[in-house]
Simulated scan of single mutants.
Amino acid sequence: MDKSKWLTGATLGLFTAPDITAAQLAERGWSAANLQQFLRSGYSPSGTAFDEMHPVIANSTQYLSDADAKAMVSFLLGDSPPAPKPVAAAAPDTGTRLAAGQSHYMALCASCHGSQGLGRQLTMPPLQGNSTVRQADGRNLVLSILIGLPKRTAAESGPTLLPGMPGFANELDDQAVADLANYVRAQMGGTNADITTARAAELRAAAQKARHPIAP
Protein backbone atom coordinates (compact mmCIF):
# COMPACT_ATOMS: atom_id res chain seq x y z
CA MET A 1 0.00 0.00 0.00
CA ASP A 2 1.35 3.40 -1.00
CA LYS A 3 0.83 5.53 2.11
CA SER A 4 1.81 8.66 0.19
CA LYS A 5 -1.54 8.38 -1.62
CA TRP A 6 -3.62 8.33 1.56
CA LEU A 7 -7.17 9.53 0.76
CA THR A 8 -6.19 10.67 -2.74
CA GLY A 9 -8.71 8.40 -4.49
CA ALA A 10 -8.56 5.95 -7.35
CA THR A 11 -10.67 4.49 -10.12
CA LEU A 12 -12.72 1.62 -8.72
CA GLY A 13 -14.63 -0.28 -11.35
CA LEU A 14 -15.92 2.37 -13.72
CA PHE A 15 -16.24 5.58 -11.71
CA THR A 16 -13.42 7.28 -9.83
CA ALA A 17 -13.46 7.70 -6.07
CA PRO A 18 -12.30 11.33 -5.73
CA ASP A 19 -9.48 12.74 -3.66
CA ILE A 20 -10.87 13.47 -0.18
CA THR A 21 -7.84 15.09 1.38
CA ALA A 22 -8.72 18.35 3.13
CA ALA A 23 -7.04 20.46 0.44
CA GLN A 24 -8.87 18.79 -2.41
CA LEU A 25 -12.24 18.78 -0.66
CA ALA A 26 -11.86 22.53 -0.19
CA GLU A 27 -10.69 22.90 -3.81
CA ARG A 28 -13.99 21.37 -4.95
CA GLY A 29 -16.02 23.61 -2.64
CA TRP A 30 -16.78 21.35 0.29
CA SER A 31 -17.49 23.10 3.59
CA ALA A 32 -17.77 21.30 6.91
CA ALA A 33 -21.54 21.85 6.94
CA ASN A 34 -22.04 20.49 3.42
CA LEU A 35 -19.87 17.47 4.09
CA GLN A 36 -21.78 16.65 7.26
CA GLN A 37 -25.09 17.00 5.40
CA PHE A 38 -23.77 14.70 2.68
CA LEU A 39 -22.72 12.01 5.15
CA ARG A 40 -26.09 12.07 6.88
CA SER A 41 -28.38 12.34 3.84
CA GLY A 42 -26.43 11.65 0.65
CA TYR A 43 -27.43 15.11 -0.59
CA SER A 44 -25.81 18.53 -0.26
CA PRO A 45 -25.25 21.69 -2.30
CA SER A 46 -21.75 20.39 -3.09
CA GLY A 47 -22.73 16.97 -4.34
CA THR A 48 -24.89 13.88 -4.03
CA ALA A 49 -24.10 10.21 -3.50
CA PHE A 50 -24.09 7.96 -6.55
CA ASP A 51 -22.72 4.62 -7.74
CA GLU A 52 -20.95 2.75 -4.92
CA MET A 53 -21.40 5.63 -2.45
CA HIS A 54 -25.15 4.92 -2.27
CA PRO A 55 -24.87 1.88 0.02
CA VAL A 56 -22.32 3.67 2.21
CA ILE A 57 -24.92 6.36 2.98
CA ALA A 58 -27.89 3.97 3.13
CA ASN A 59 -26.27 1.32 5.32
CA SER A 60 -23.79 3.30 7.36
CA THR A 61 -23.25 7.03 7.57
CA GLN A 62 -26.91 8.09 7.71
CA TYR A 63 -27.01 6.45 11.14
CA LEU A 64 -24.15 8.48 12.55
CA SER A 65 -25.03 10.65 15.51
CA ASP A 66 -24.50 14.38 15.10
CA ALA A 67 -21.38 14.10 17.24
CA ASP A 68 -19.97 11.23 15.22
CA ALA A 69 -20.74 12.93 11.89
CA LYS A 70 -18.94 16.07 13.12
CA ALA A 71 -16.02 13.92 14.24
CA MET A 72 -15.74 12.33 10.79
CA VAL A 73 -15.82 15.75 9.15
CA SER A 74 -13.09 16.94 11.53
CA PHE A 75 -11.04 13.87 10.65
CA LEU A 76 -11.28 14.72 6.95
CA LEU A 77 -11.07 18.52 7.05
CA GLY A 78 -9.18 19.08 10.28
CA ASP A 79 -10.10 21.13 13.33
CA SER A 80 -9.65 24.32 11.31
CA PRO A 81 -11.08 23.40 7.89
CA PRO A 82 -9.63 25.17 4.86
CA ALA A 83 -12.01 27.66 3.30
CA PRO A 84 -14.05 26.13 0.46
CA LYS A 85 -12.97 27.54 -2.88
CA PRO A 86 -15.72 29.48 -4.65
CA VAL A 87 -16.64 28.57 -8.21
CA ALA A 88 -14.41 30.52 -10.58
CA ALA A 89 -16.08 32.71 -13.16
CA ALA A 90 -16.19 31.05 -16.55
CA ALA A 91 -13.78 32.38 -19.14
CA PRO A 92 -15.44 34.79 -21.58
CA ASP A 93 -17.26 32.84 -24.28
CA THR A 94 -16.69 33.86 -27.85
CA GLY A 95 -20.27 32.93 -28.69
CA THR A 96 -19.26 29.68 -30.40
CA ARG A 97 -16.84 27.88 -28.08
CA LEU A 98 -19.53 26.49 -25.78
CA ALA A 99 -22.61 27.07 -27.89
CA ALA A 100 -23.00 23.45 -28.96
CA GLY A 101 -22.73 22.24 -25.37
CA GLN A 102 -25.27 24.79 -24.20
CA SER A 103 -27.69 23.63 -26.88
CA HIS A 104 -27.39 20.02 -25.71
CA TYR A 105 -27.75 21.10 -22.08
CA MET A 106 -30.94 23.02 -22.70
CA ALA A 107 -32.41 20.13 -24.71
CA LEU A 108 -31.49 17.29 -22.37
CA CYS A 109 -30.62 18.59 -18.91
CA ALA A 110 -32.32 21.91 -18.13
CA SER A 111 -35.79 20.45 -17.53
CA CYS A 112 -34.46 18.64 -14.45
CA HIS A 113 -31.35 20.53 -13.34
CA GLY A 114 -32.62 23.99 -14.35
CA SER A 115 -31.33 26.36 -16.99
CA GLN A 116 -28.70 27.68 -14.55
CA GLY A 117 -27.93 24.27 -13.06
CA LEU A 118 -29.42 25.13 -9.66
CA GLY A 119 -31.42 21.90 -9.35
CA ARG A 120 -34.36 21.46 -7.00
CA GLN A 121 -33.89 21.10 -3.26
CA LEU A 122 -33.86 17.42 -2.21
CA THR A 123 -35.32 16.27 -5.52
CA MET A 124 -32.81 17.15 -8.22
CA PRO A 125 -29.09 17.69 -7.60
CA PRO A 126 -27.62 21.09 -8.49
CA LEU A 127 -24.85 21.16 -11.06
CA GLN A 128 -23.79 24.71 -10.22
CA GLY A 129 -20.81 24.24 -7.91
CA ASN A 130 -21.22 20.47 -7.85
CA SER A 131 -18.01 18.77 -6.74
CA THR A 132 -18.21 16.17 -9.53
CA VAL A 133 -18.43 18.94 -12.10
CA ARG A 134 -15.43 20.60 -10.45
CA GLN A 135 -13.15 17.54 -10.46
CA ALA A 136 -9.92 18.12 -12.35
CA ASP A 137 -10.52 14.85 -14.18
CA GLY A 138 -13.92 14.93 -15.89
CA ARG A 139 -14.23 11.12 -15.94
CA ASN A 140 -17.21 10.86 -13.58
CA LEU A 141 -19.12 13.66 -15.31
CA VAL A 142 -18.62 12.17 -18.77
CA LEU A 143 -19.64 8.70 -17.58
CA SER A 144 -22.75 10.13 -15.95
CA ILE A 145 -23.69 11.74 -19.26
CA LEU A 146 -23.07 8.50 -21.14
CA ILE A 147 -24.67 5.89 -18.89
CA GLY A 148 -26.75 7.90 -16.44
CA LEU A 149 -27.31 7.12 -12.77
CA PRO A 150 -29.75 4.47 -11.54
CA LYS A 151 -32.89 5.21 -9.60
CA ARG A 152 -32.67 3.78 -6.12
CA THR A 153 -35.37 2.34 -3.92
CA ALA A 154 -35.94 3.87 -0.49
CA ALA A 155 -33.98 1.02 1.09
CA GLU A 156 -31.03 1.56 -1.24
CA SER A 157 -30.82 5.33 -1.28
CA GLY A 158 -30.99 6.22 2.39
CA PRO A 159 -32.85 9.24 3.71
CA THR A 160 -32.94 11.19 0.44
CA LEU A 161 -34.68 9.43 -2.44
CA LEU A 162 -33.40 11.01 -5.65
CA PRO A 163 -34.69 10.08 -9.10
CA GLY A 164 -32.43 8.29 -11.51
CA MET A 165 -30.79 9.99 -14.45
CA PRO A 166 -30.97 8.56 -17.97
CA GLY A 167 -27.83 8.09 -19.99
CA PHE A 168 -27.51 9.87 -23.32
CA ALA A 169 -25.01 7.64 -25.09
CA ASN A 170 -27.50 6.82 -27.81
CA GLU A 171 -28.58 10.45 -28.28
CA LEU A 172 -25.12 12.03 -28.33
CA ASP A 173 -22.04 11.12 -30.31
CA ASP A 174 -18.58 11.56 -28.80
CA GLN A 175 -18.22 15.15 -29.98
CA ALA A 176 -21.59 16.07 -28.47
CA VAL A 177 -20.71 14.36 -25.18
CA ALA A 178 -17.48 16.34 -25.00
CA ASP A 179 -19.30 19.58 -25.86
CA LEU A 180 -21.92 19.02 -23.17
CA ALA A 181 -19.36 18.09 -20.53
CA ASN A 182 -17.25 21.13 -21.37
CA TYR A 183 -20.22 23.49 -21.16
CA VAL A 184 -21.17 22.19 -17.73
CA ARG A 185 -17.57 22.24 -16.49
CA ALA A 186 -16.92 25.78 -17.69
CA GLN A 187 -20.25 27.43 -16.87
CA MET A 188 -21.22 25.60 -13.67
CA GLY A 189 -17.95 24.30 -12.31
CA GLY A 190 -15.59 27.14 -13.20
CA THR A 191 -13.06 24.60 -14.42
CA ASN A 192 -11.34 23.82 -17.68
CA ALA A 193 -13.36 22.90 -20.75
CA ASP A 194 -10.78 20.28 -21.65
CA ILE A 195 -12.75 17.13 -22.45
CA THR A 196 -11.77 15.95 -25.91
CA THR A 197 -13.73 13.84 -28.36
CA ALA A 198 -11.08 11.14 -27.94
CA ARG A 199 -11.61 11.14 -24.17
CA ALA A 200 -15.35 10.78 -24.60
CA ALA A 201 -14.79 7.87 -26.99
CA GLU A 202 -12.36 6.24 -24.54
CA LEU A 203 -14.89 6.40 -21.70
CA ARG A 204 -17.69 5.17 -23.95
CA ALA A 205 -15.54 2.11 -24.70
CA ALA A 206 -14.79 1.63 -21.01
CA ALA A 207 -18.50 1.68 -20.22
CA GLN A 208 -19.20 -0.85 -22.95
CA LYS A 209 -16.46 -3.12 -21.64
CA ALA A 210 -17.63 -2.86 -18.03
CA ARG A 211 -21.10 -3.37 -16.64
CA HIS A 212 -22.84 -0.80 -18.84
CA PRO A 213 -23.15 -2.07 -22.41
CA ILE A 214 -24.22 0.74 -24.75
CA ALA A 215 -26.06 0.07 -27.96
CA PRO A 216 -24.37 1.52 -31.04
Rank of each mutant, 00 (worst) to 15 (best):
residue 1 M to G: 14
residue 2 D to W: 09
residue 3 K to S: 01
residue 3 K to M: 12
residue 6 W to D: 14
residue 6 W to E: 13
residue 7 L to K: 15
residue 14 L to S: 09
residue 24 Q to M: 09
residue 25 L to E: 05
residue 26 A to W: 08
residue 27 E to F: 10
residue 28 R to N: 08
residue 28 R to I: 03
residue 29 G to Q: 00
residue 30 W to K: 05
residue 33 A to C: 06
residue 34 N to S: 03
residue 35 L to G: 00
residue 35 L to Q: 03
residue 35 L to Y: 07
residue 37 Q to E: 15
residue 37 Q to Y: 02
residue 39 L to M: 12
residue 42 G to F: 02
residue 42 G to K: 09
residue 45 P to R: 12
residue 46 S to H: 04
residue 46 S to G: 14
residue 49 A to G: 07
residue 49 A to S: 14
residue 55 P to G: 05
residue 55 P to A: 03
residue 60 S to H: 14
residue 63 Y to S: 06
residue 63 Y to F: 15
residue 66 D to E: 11
residue 66 D to S: 09
residue 67 A to M: 02
residue 67 A to S: 10
residue 70 K to D: 14
residue 81 P to I: 12
residue 81 P to T: 04
residue 82 P to N: 07
residue 84 P to D: 11
residue 85 K to F: 04
residue 86 P to R: 12
residue 87 V to Y: 10
residue 89 A to H: 04
residue 91 A to N: 01
residue 95 G to K: 11
residue 97 R to S: 06
residue 99 A to S: 10
residue 99 A to H: 06
residue 100 A to M: 11
residue 101 G to C: 03
residue 103 S to N: 01
residue 105 Y to P: 05
residue 105 Y to H: 04
residue 109 C to R: 13
residue 111 S to N: 03
residue 117 G to Y: 09
residue 118 L to R: 06
residue 120 R to E: 14
residue 121 Q to L: 14
residue 121 Q to H: 13
residue 123 T to N: 05
residue 126 P to F: 00
residue 129 G to F: 05
residue 130 N to C: 00
residue 131 S to W: 12
residue 132 T to W: 09
residue 132 T to K: 00
residue 132 T to Q: 10
residue 134 R to S: 06
residue 135 Q to I: 06
residue 135 Q to R: 03
residue 137 D to N: 15
residue 137 D to H: 03
residue 138 G to N: 10
residue 141 L to W: 06
residue 142 V to P: 10
residue 147 I to S: 09
residue 147 I to E: 02
residue 148 G to V: 00
residue 159 P to F: 01
residue 159 P to G: 04
residue 160 T to V: 14
residue 160 T to Q: 08
residue 163 P to M: 11
residue 164 G to N: 04
residue 170 N to Q: 10
residue 171 E to V: 08
residue 172 L to K: 06
residue 182 N to A: 09
residue 183 Y to T: 06
residue 185 R to V: 07
residue 188 M to S: 07
residue 192 N to D: 08
residue 192 N to V: 00
residue 194 D to V: 08
residue 197 T to A: 03
residue 200 A to M: 09
residue 203 L to V: 07
residue 204 R to E: 02
residue 209 K to Y: 02
residue 213 P to N: 12
residue 214 I to L: 15
residue 215 A to Q: 10
residue 215 A to N: 13
residue 216 P to T: 01
